[in-house]
């Protein structure tokens, strides 16, 4: 049934650290690698070596530039995948019962044997987390690597989603966000983790940790060591200055200030 469970025993999900993510797209590749060979149909690529290649991905990393007022701009890499929402609209809109949210752990999955590929669930998702596979015609989405996390054939350290396992900067964390004492819940509390688009009313399980405030250099700009040239260099400077044309005179106090002011305007 595509009715949502009133509550789930666990709320498994990801915590994504926007401060430490370096934007390497390793999670994207690991996700595609694991999920193209496991749960459900492969994640197809259409025209992969041709002029107009495209493919299905369950996780994608955007890069944004944030410009705080009066400070240096900063780059924020932004991985985006299914947030396994508690009020998942993608589940309730599904006409066939293919989309469902698991009562035991809160994972949102697609049963491809029921999916008609109508795309309405993708329309209902504010996060762009669902992509219709262009080859198989069924909806693909993050499974939270449901076939890894409970898989006793894998070594214990591998029983986390592929994206988490592969992340080289430790920017992705997996755990039970329904338990306030879990590591991920503590991390969210410590770092002020937030929901994406809370106004959509979806109550995402996944949380994002905001970039830490950047410190500002508390050192004044380098002062010129000499404002008035003397000796041979002074003579040379004056001599060259007499030649008509726009010459670079050694910096004086005035010219240094002008340069600084101009650079601040930019």
């Amino acid at each position: 049934m595509t009715c949502l469970p009133s509550s789930t025993q666990k709320k498994l999900g990801l915590v994504i650290d926007l401060d430490t993510c370096v934007g390497c797209h390793g999670c994207v590749t690991a996700c595609k690698g694991w999920n193209t060979q496991n749960y459900g149909v492969p994640l197809s690529d259409i025209d992969p070596y041709g002029a107009d290649p495209q493919g299905t991905f369950l996780n994608r990393v955007f890069s944004y530039e944030v410009q705080p007022e009066g400070k240096s701009a900063q780059t924020v890499h932004f991985p985006k995948s299914c947030l396994h929402c508690e009020d998942a609209p993608c589940v309730t809109v599904c006409p066939t019962g293919a989309s469902y949210k698991r009562e035991e752990d809160g994972i949102v999955l697609v049963n491809e044997d029921r999916c008609i590929g109508c795309g309405l669930c993708a329309w209902s998702c504010a996060y762009g987390a669902r992509e219709l596979d262009r080859d198989a015609g069924v909806m693909k989405k993050c499974t939270l690597c449901v076939d890894r996390i409970y898989n006793e054939n894998l070594p214990e350290e591998d029983r986390v989603p592929a994206c988490v396992r592969t992340c080289p900067s430790g920017a992705r964390h997996f755990g039970n966000l329904g338990d306030p004492n879990s590591d991920v819940s503590k991390l969210v509390a410590d770092r002020g983790g937030f929901d994406l688009m809370p106004e959509q009313g979806t109550r995402p399980v996944n949380k994002y940790l905001p970039p830490r405030p950047k410190d500002e250099m508390d050192v004044p700009a380098l002062k010129p060591v000499a404002t008035e040239a003397s000796g041979f260099l002074g003579w040379l400077d004056k001599a060259l200055g007499r030649i008509p044309g726009k010459g670079d005179r050694l910096p004086t106090k005035e010219t240094v200030q002008e340069t600084v002011q101009e650079s601040e305007k930019v």
């Binding site: 955007f62 944030v66 410009q67 007022e69 994406l196």
Partner: peptide
């Protein structure tokens, strides 16, 4: 959309993919 608006003005630096996709 990104929740980063409180820090400052946000602009797209690089899209997640250069090819088109379903979305």
């Amino acid at each position: 959309a990104t929740g980063l608006g409180e820090i400052g003005q946000v602009r797209l630096l690089e899209s997640a993919h250069t090819a088109r996709n379903y979305i």
